[in-house]
């Protein structure tokens, strides 16, 4: 079949807002090879999170298909077994691990529960998983509130790894972390995909972060992909005026917010808003 772990084809989604429709995802197609990492960037409301949510089954696409390792995922899973099967293929890490970890469970209990839920054997793997994400054995006995933000995000990543998914979707997973902790988590993600072959979809508004963990990148605006290609090429030699706008918006040497506004006005005039 296909050599890609994840293949998305012609994905379409519109939301009804008031009297009209907002197209959150317009004919989006992309593919990620084993161990590959795809970035998905754009501003709020561009449709990044809608794509992430459709992949994990939190939203139902209006049209289009999602294949994981050549097998098509259903658009609407019925029953516990079907939903679990889907969850085992694609796992998601959210921005706020405090909201996604059960505060009553220790990290070890959380990992154990995830593995039992998915019928993956092995409380014996817990120590290995903790080590894989750079947590110490003692952190297994900690509850989320006893951990730092970075440690909590490591625990959330360990929970994903516990059930051995094919694809990990990270939705702004490092956005809330301090730069030094962020750098550690990014290095960890690079290590994971090199060693496990898990494909990553990395959703972020932060281009610099995306440039560090992805091979390819999709630039989205209002539901459509405006530019895609190897991350280095897209970020260093952007072709689309929107990508150029995004890059020039990032504070850096010589950055002036006024120039950004001019570029934005020029772009909006170009797309006719």
């Amino acid at each position: 079949m296909s050599e890609h772990v994840l293949e998305v084809d012609g994905l379409q989604k519109a939301f009804r807002v008031g009297a009209g429709n907002v197209v959150a995802c317009n004919n989006v197609s992309f593919a990620i090879p084993p161990g590959g990492s795809m970035g998905l960037v754009g501003e709020s409301g561009s449709g990044k999170s809608t794509i992430a949510r459709m992949l994990v089954g939190l939203e139902t696409p209006d049209a289009g298909t999602i294949h994981v390792r050549g097998r098509q995922l259903g658009t609407r899973e019925r029953g516990r077994a079907a939903r679990l099967r889907r969850a085992k293929e694609i796992q998601m890490v959210f921005q706020d691990p405090y909201g996604s970890l059960d505060r009553r469970l220790t990290v070890a209990q959380c990992l154990d529960q995830a593995m039992r839920l998915h019928g993956v054997s092995g409380s014996s793997r817990i120590a290995g998983l903790l080590d894989q994400v750079g947590l110490l054995a003692k952190h297994g006995d900690s509850k989320p509130h006893q951990l730092s933000g970075g440690q909590r995000q490591r625990a959330a990543i360990a929970r994903c790894l516990a059930i051995e998914p094919s694809v990990m979707v990270l939705d702004e997973a490092v956005s809330a972390l301090d730069v030094s902790v962020q750098a550690q988590i990014l290095a960890l993600l690079n290590e994971i995909r090199a060693s496990s072959g898990i494909a990553l979809l990395f959703v972020s508004h932060d281009l610099a972060v995306v440039s560090e963990v992805t091979d390819d990148v999709l630039v989205m605006y209002r539901g459509s992909i405006l530019e895609q290609g190897p991350t280095g090429r897209v970020l260093n030699a952007p072709e689309h005026s929107y990508t150029k706008l995004l890059i020039s918006s990032m504070p850096g040497p010589g950055w002036d917010p006024k120039n950004v506004l001019e570029r934005r006005a020029a772009f909006l005039a170009e797309v006719g808003v």
């Binding site: 750079g134 490591r154 440039s211 970020l235």
Partner: peptide, 21 residues
């Protein structure tokens, strides 16, 4: 200096261990 070296930037990889400190 340590803080600055951890700041991600387009086209540069931070030299950081993945282990928690």
């Amino acid at each position: 200096r340590r803080l600055l070296s951890a700041v991600p930037a387009i086209g540069h990889l931070p030299k950081t261990e993945s282990r928690a400190s």
